[in-house]
Design a binder for these strands. Structure first.
Lengths: 242, 242
DNA sequence: GTCTCTATCGATACACCGTATCAGGCGAGG
DNA sequence: CCTCGCCTGATACGGTGTATCGATAGAGAC
């Protein structure tokens, strides 16, 4: 603890508290604590200062292991892909493999909701992402109907886009409902009257029908249904081009 | 300009420079300047202080018109939906309407790239969003094959998820390429060697095939292809349930 | 017309962020 | 044993969103 002016003679000053042991760091450890913070609260709860504090270190210590906060996010996302890859590789025809992959992705996102804030937000080149992409590509490429590698790319682009968008919507919804659960009356008092007023204007007849008649399936059913639509679309496109 | 200690007698102090006229504000004006800032740079360039400064006001002045920064984002996104709604409503069968809607959405996102950072990020209940949703629902509901309102919901969920995910990926890509264009050599020197090394490990044979053989279509083609897949999937699901 | 009370507004202040800078401590080389 | 150089991490800076609360202007009563 150096100080510019030192009015107290050193004999009166206590020693610095025992040298904080200087716990050794590593990227793995940093990423683990960051993920723990994000799981417990939010992505916004992940600050370099908090991560460092959780590791008994000053903020700048982390810059030996990464050069930017965004790189920390990249590592976190890659670690989640690592979780998905750790499970046994799925088997079956390409539809089964793609479906299984999407479901595992969804499971991972439910474990780590903050992932949706990162998905598709930055170009991903981490080793686990590449391995994941490879396993998807190899499952699809060479299957009956997929002649050129472009066919595989088209299919993956479609299904990946769907998964990202659907998970984003689902988590957004879950967050909103959770907040609503906390202050139920606040949400009811604030948003419901507004929506009712809008509906009563008569300008949204079909929306009214939704509110009245729609059976709202659970999120996992909805996810699965959309997945079926995209898979069916891929198959239809394959059939048509022959 | 009140000051705690006032050493200079008031007679010596000049009047405040002419009263800054106190430009009248409005939500519309605030949202317009915020959008201008975001268009010019980033979402991160939109800070309450900068918006207020652009309007010759102090930061806290804005809190009379909104109570949180997130509400400003909500207004911005709703305004973009307003742009989409301003065009003449599309006509044709449900496929044509959904396709046209997706293309307009994409056009809007290309005009305002920051929209992808907001899409699906918060529950959207703005009037323009509701109107938009209504127009989509009414275009689909009642079309041949769509018996129950649930069918329309399924179709919209699928296509909306795809659009969100695909646009997110496209814009992310565009941003990366733009950065790469600025420091071409930096990107080449940093990422290309890493990728080459990864490919040369032989653990990613199919990825290698992509790099070697894939024809990389332009983003608009890719978007359109994926859109076709999802539309085909919706149709297939309709046919199957009869 | 004048005085008082009240409600609004916005300057100031606070806690926090990511990260540039650079003094200080520590290890290696002479 | 001394000196030099590197590396580390404390400090500092410029920014953020927003709570607080004194100043101010306007309305209402006498």
């Amino acid at each position: 603890m150096p100080q510019r002016d030192e009015p107290v003679p050193i004999w009166d000053r206590p020693e610095p508290p025992d040298k904080p042991a200087l716990t050794p760091l590593s990227r793995a450890k940093i990423v683990r604590t960051a993920i723990a913070l994000a799981d417990a609260e939010d992505l916004s709860a992940v600050s370099l200062r908090k991560v460092a504090a959780a590791l008994d270190a000053g903020p700048m210590r982390l810059y030996g292991y990464l050069s930017t906060k965004e790189e920390l996010f990249d590592l976190m996302l890659d670690a989640v892909y690592g979780e998905i890859l750790a499970e046994a590789p799925p088997s079956g025809d390409w539809q089964a493999v793609l479906r299984e992959w999407a479901l595992r992705m969804r499971a991972a996102v439910l474990r780590h909701e903050w992932v949706v804030d990162l998905l598709g937000g930055r170009p991903q080149l981490g080793p686990n992402v590449l391995a994941h992409l490879e396993s998807l590509l190899s499952a699809v490429d060479g299957s009956p109907g997929f002649g050129h590698i472009d066919d595989a790319m088209r299919a993956l682009h479609a299904i990946n886009s769907y998964v990202v968008g659907a998970l984003r919507a689902e988590i957004t919804n879950a967050r909103a409902e959770r907040r609503a659960g906390q202050d139920e009356q606040q949400w009811q008092n604030a948003n419901a009257p507004y929506l009712m007023r809008m509906l009563k204007t008569g300008k949204f007849p079909t929306l009214g029908k939704v509110v009245a008649d729609a059976t709202h399936p659970g999120p996992s059913v909805r996810f699965s249904e959309g997945l079926g639509i995209v898979l069916a679309g891929i198959e239809a496109q394959l059939a048509e081009q022959t």
